[in-house]
Design a protein around this nucleic acid. Structure first.
Lengths: 172, 172
DNA sequence: TCGATCATGTAATTGGTTACATGATTGC
DNA sequence: GCAATCATGTAACCAATTACATGATCGA
């Protein structure tokens, strides 16, 4: 699903500014997707031209001016069509496997330390996700909670998988 | 690791043409990385200019002319430096989770069929990887074999994880 | 007063893909 | 004779990031 559909997805529930949309990514969504302002604002501009959203400039006495984006009927239609499209597995690029593939060119202790450092970085993300639990449980709907639980299991599995590889690297 | 480093990595073992490099991706490497001719040839051209590889045009009486790429001492140095750099987990984009996140907007049976179709596509990739076993075991070095085993476990875990999510979607 | 947060946007760059363009050779 | 495979490359396009540019407001 491209940037545009994700932005439309967030706007299905309520109207938001570009800034708020960026924040929407940072909670439970961040570990499996994300967008920067450099793609959010141009995407919103384009979507307005295409009639998928409406943008109301808000002149406030306090605080900076903002542009509130509201999804149109056409936008809802387009989003639902996209969501209904069948989707299949997309090859997953893995920095870890790419490195491991060429590990023969590294000295044994470089291999071990490199893999171990990666393992720790995965554990770090896992812990961050675990700590986000109360926040997510408060805000997420049923399916977003399924996403979260999927994510927890994913990192649990990934940690175990890497740990096994690290262990194999250690006995040499 | 970028395209250039991966190409250099393949050239560490033996000299190859752009065409052969493309093929090198298609065996065990394909499920976690990949490159098209449109990025391989320009990358090779650039790397020759930078002195990382040498290219010898080969005029053959039989078969099309080819350019054999050989890594230089400088190229080896650059590759090893890249390989030694520490690396950390990079957020994994997941089409499945992105869809699941917005599943509230879909009818129950659309949710189930969509998730199930995705599950089948993952199983398909898993089976393809399983079938590649003899080929990989014949060609891979110790670390490439670790990559393969990591991949097998990864898909096994992923299948189980999706199956659990599908199951949760079914009881409603 | 200073840093954090709110707020919007553009320009340059990166790092690819897909489609196009060409043409020889080999095996059936 | 025809399809598959070998072989190289370019041009158009795409989707995104990073850095730049600007500026108000709020709380400590």
């Amino acid at each position: 699903m491209d940037a545009r559909s994700i932005l439309l997805g967030f706007l299905m529930n309520r109207s938001m500014t570009g800034y708020e949309l960026k924040k929407a990514f940072s909670i439970s969504f961040s570990f499996f997707s994300g967008l920067s302002y450099g793609s959010i604002y141009p995407a919103l501009g384009k979507m307005e031209k295409e009639g998928l959203i409406r943008m109301q400039a808000e002149m406030r006495k306090s605080g900076p001016n903002r542009k509130i984006c509201t999804i149109t009927a056409e936008g809802r239609k387009v989003f639902l069509e996209t969501l209904k499209e069948p989707f299949a597995f997309e090859g997953t690029k893995s920095i870890f496997l790419t490195r491991l593939f060429f590990f023969a060119h590294l000295a044994p202790e470089e291999r071990r330390s490199s893999a171990h450092r990666y393992f720790e970085s995965v554990r770090q993300v896992e812990k961050t996700l675990q700590r986000a639990r109360p926040e997510i449980e408060a805000k997420a709907d049923r399916f977003q909670l399924l996403c979260y639980r999927f994510g927890l299991r994913f990192f649990e599995d990934l940690s175990r998988n890497i740990a096994q590889t690290v262990k194999a690297l250690e006995k040499e």
